[in-house]
Write a protein that binds this DNA or RNA. Structure first.
Length: 191
DNA sequence: AAACGGATGGGCT
DNA sequence: GCCCATCCGTTTG
């Protein structure tokens, strides 16, 4: 397992969304270490009406227009945060939303943060995994090839199939098949 | 099993 | 002022 390089993210966003499946997200804090396997993602392209970047650059979405491989974290519904990675190249506002993880390390800590003992409820949604992993808004713009929050490459070949479907929880552009998940995985947000 | 609505506040027209 | 890249408990069929 080694950190993903800048070039991993400096590619077409759909490609990155698929390649991220099977990679590990890992966060080290004074409370302890948590990690999980990325099992579900969604791609948001610059010409996509559902993307935060569709109407151009604003204070909130600036990271998506910046260099690839950085954390884009946004506040939503008055109480939650969601975690994305900027992709493609500088100047193009695109990114990948991480929608679900299969919990790996620090499961007790995740249970404490999420206030539940049900393993399938820990990281099966974009806001859930942010809480379980202890990701905070201060990571906005953080380079994900560095600690304490990193994405690591799974070394071996991928022994799973990728399912492609419509995205979840959006109104415009919902028909675009830009959601990807690991076939048969029990930890995705929704079948 | 599915549908519904409340919580709760920042972003943008 | 309206709209959310959500979640969870409650109600309904």
């Amino acid at each position: 397992m080694k950190p993903l390089s800048r070039s991993f993210f400096k590619k077409p966003t759909i490609e990155v969304a698929k390649s991220l499946l099977g990679c590990h997200l890992i966060h080290e804090t004074p409370e302890g270490k948590t990690s999980g396997i990325i099992v579900e993602t969604e791609a948001y392209l610059h010409d996509d009406p559902a993307s935060h970047t569709f109407n151009g650059k604003t204070p909130r979405n600036t990271v998506m227009f910046g260099p690839p491989g950085k954390a884009y974290i946004y506040f939503t519904y008055g109480m939650y945060y969601c975690f994305n990675v900027s992709t493609n190249k500088e100047g193009i506002g695109e990114g990948v939303l991480i929608r679900a993880l299969e919990p790996l390390e620090g499961i007790d800590l995740m249970k404490k943060r999420r206030k539940t003992d049900k393993i399938k409820q820990l990281c099966s949604g974009p806001a859930k995994l942010v809480i379980a992993m202890g990701i905070k808004k201060t990571y906005l713009g953080h380079d994900l090839s560095n600690p304490p929050l990193q994405i690591l490459h799974s070394a071996g070949k991928k022994d799973f199939k990728i399912i492609k479907t419509e995205r979840i929880g959006i109104s415009t552009g919902r028909d675009l098949p830009h959601r990807f998940y690991i076939k048969g995985n029990e930890f995705i947000s929704k079948k």
